[in-house]
């Protein structure tokens, strides 16, 4: 009976919020909790897939770069090498078709660097390169005809 009275007295009391809570606490709490959530398995799996894809791409790039540097290339890389592969007849035909004059050719040739075969090539260019013209050119460029012997 006494026990029931105790219960009644407590039950009759108005239940109040006793503890004060900092202002805005319940606005911030969901944000704090969401920030602490672990990364989902799906995201983790995606991250792993992304990691392996990137690793694979980087490995392939590295292999290609190493191969490029280490394997000696057979490709000619400068204009002289490329030109050396063109048949002489084709070069003569090209020069004739382009209407390039002898003077123009000679202006662009350094005779000091020209070897015999290259000077001799001039004999095939056309009727202009007869003995007389060659002598004149040799005189003009102050060289001897030893190269033409």
């Amino acid at each position: 009976m006494k026990h029931e009275n105790h219960s009644k007295r407590l039950e009759q009391r108005e239940r109040k919020d006793y503890f004060a809570i900092p202002e805005g606490y319940f606005d911030e709490l969901p944000i704090k909790i969401m920030e602490r959530l672990p990364v989902s398995r799906e995201s983790k799996a995606w991250n792993q897939l992304w990691f392996w894809q990137l690793s694979g791409s980087l490995f392939l790039t590295a292999v290609l770069l190493i191969g490029y540097w280490l394997i000696p290339t057979q490709m000619p890389l400068n204009a002289e090498s490329l030109l050396a592969e063109v048949p002489r007849e084709a070069i003569i035909e090209y020069i004739q078709n382009q209407g390039i004059g002898t003077d123009e050719i000679m202006e662009n040739i350094s005779l000091e660097e020209v070897e015999f075969d290259e000077v001799y090539l001039l004999h095939d260019v056309g009727p202009f390169f007869d003995k007389k013209n060659i002598d004149r050119l040799l005189e003009q460029y102050q060289t001897t005809d030893e190269l033409l012997q």
Binding site: R13, K16, D17, Y18, F19, A20
Partner: peptide, 9 residues
């Protein structure tokens, strides 16, 4: 603590 209620009981 800071209380909302100042009720002594």
């Amino acid at each position: 603590q800071n209380y909302i209620s100042g009720d002594e009981i």
